[in-house]
Design a protein around this nucleic acid. Structure first.
Lengths: 111, 111
DNA sequence: CATCGTTATGTATTCGTGTATATAACGTAT
DNA sequence: ATACGTTATATACACGAATACATAACGATG
């Protein structure tokens, strides 16, 4: 089966900063309230998930995710307002791109 | 420096078939008349370039590149009409996507 | 028929990335 | 004070992909 696909992401200083992977991870964090559960839910190692979130917070002017250790539930993680805005704006953009792609599927007739 | 980037490609049966790399390679083949020169021009090993072209022709209903061995110049490669159409249509699509991205740069203000 | 530059093809090796594994720190509740 | 589940962090290992390397085939030309 043939199909047109695309990927859109944000670069900072030439290196990948934010894209489909982080989006899904943030959505799962919002849903689960936990970084380890979010990582497991998307079949990703905790370390990689943590690296992503750390990088996200590190390079941004305002934090994207707030996390805490200890407590009865062991700790947890949640999105900031900025984090939620970031997801929303990104999804808005990708949905526009998706629409353009859908309008140009005749490209597939060439192969 | 921050920026929004994207990549668009064609899948066949879930695997990458055609994207930015092959586009550039095809353009250089058209310009040079040679696969080895095209590969060298984009700093790619000849083998990888050949694999790409082979895969391109193999999966398509009509060939994208015609090549010949031997002769006074050793051989050569050139695009078919289909190949040229493919490049043109692909670039048309990506330029539309580029326009959408450019209209949504305010996303960057969140980080 | 020897030469030449290209296409065609296989194999070995390097390298980056993700995963696995291990350990520490944290703080609430029992 | 102990237990628990999570965040935080470092190191070692496995895997796949890209690259380097090596070699054969091809055919016009002189």
């Amino acid at each position: 089966m043939k199909g047109i696909r695309f990927r859109c992401w944000i670069d900072i200083d030439g290196e990948k900063y934010f894209g489909p992977g982080p989006v899904q991870l943030l959505q799962l964090i919002e849903q689960e309230g936990s970084l380890s559960k979010a990582a497991k839910a998307m079949g990703m190692s905790y370390k990689k998930a943590w690296d992503i979130i750390n990088h996200l917070n590190d390079k941004a002017t305002d934090p994207i995710v707030l996390s805490k250790t200890g407590g009865s539930k062991g700790g947890g993680a949640q999105l900031t307002i900025r984090g939620k805005q970031l997801i929303e704006s990104y999804l808005e953009l990708t949905s526009k791109l998706e629409a353009v792609v859908a309008e140009n599927k005749q490209l597939l007739d060439l192969i």
